[in-house]
Nucleic acid binder design. Structure first.
Lengths: 135, 135
DNA sequence: CGCCTTGATGATAACGATTGTCAAAGTCAG
DNA sequence: CTGACTTTGACAATCGTTATCATCAAGGCG
């Protein structure tokens, strides 16, 4: 049986409210800040459940944390992330969506989910890096 | 100053020999098997260095480990990974390379590195999933 | 409405991967 | 060869995540 607890709802809400990717720890911290005495283990469980039910997508960030985001099967976008300062720019990529889908199908794969993220140095950090190099 | 120790070379060799993605732990285990009394910490350091020098690329797998691969600036390819059985198919994606680069540039980002991986169910697992669903 | 069954919760411990520490050894320049 | 300085490597510390397990609450039923 699947019970509908307020904790699970809280996690789901927090996830969709955040919009982008959030780590389990951040989500937990946020919920605690918001007054919920929710436990860390519960947040992990809820996220894990949501992910396996297809309501959330997960990927691993560059700092070893698992990031989750509310999965709206469409309205899907990717990220351009600064390796240095963490700035994130949301980008859309219909071309890539299409490519991913057709590539998956060409190999007989179904249920294509893709992780397309571009890491680089944002304009500011690029400038700083240039200075650091010349110094 | 950057010293050139056999340990670092060993790591670099092991990385390029493996071809695909390897976890730090696997790499370390492999080196030990091969007779090198190299330390685990050293492997991590070497990989980290190689990654920051641009000689290696790193991404985080779905099991919490960091995966590294020798970065041949060209001959670069992506992976189509089965979420269920782990089968990996290498795919090429010039179109995506170009897209990633131009998108990064369009936002003023430099040193674009991208992570483009498609997860899905391979033909075999798709079939099994279909059976499981109908059962 | 209250009881009972059963899954969910949460504090904590366990766990694995990664990173920091620091003495000892190795490497390179002179 | 010698000295200075870096890297190594064993081990502990740290961090994120997962398992454990007693307790609690949700929901169905009488």
């Amino acid at each position: 049986m699947k019970r509908n607890t307020w904790q699970r709802q809280a996690v789901r809400d927090a996830l969709s409210t955040s919009g982008g990717f959030v780590s389990a720890q951040e989500l937990h911290a946020g919920l605690r800040e918001g007054g919920s005495p929710i436990g860390l283990a519960t947040v992990y469980r809820a996220l894990s459940d949501l992910a396996s039910e297809g309501e959330a997508d997960s990927l691993h960030g560059n700092d070893g944390e698992s990031l989750y985001r509310a999965c709206s099967t469409e309205g899907h976008h990717h990220h351009l992330i600064c390796s240095n300062c963490g700035t994130t720019v949301e980008i859309e990529a219909d071309a890539v969506e299409t490519w991913a889908k057709s590539t998956a199908e060409a190999h007989g794969f179904t249920q294509p989910r893709h992780v397309v993220d571009i890491f680089g140095l944002c304009p500011r950090c690029s400038a700083e890096a240039a200075v650091a190099h010349s110094a």
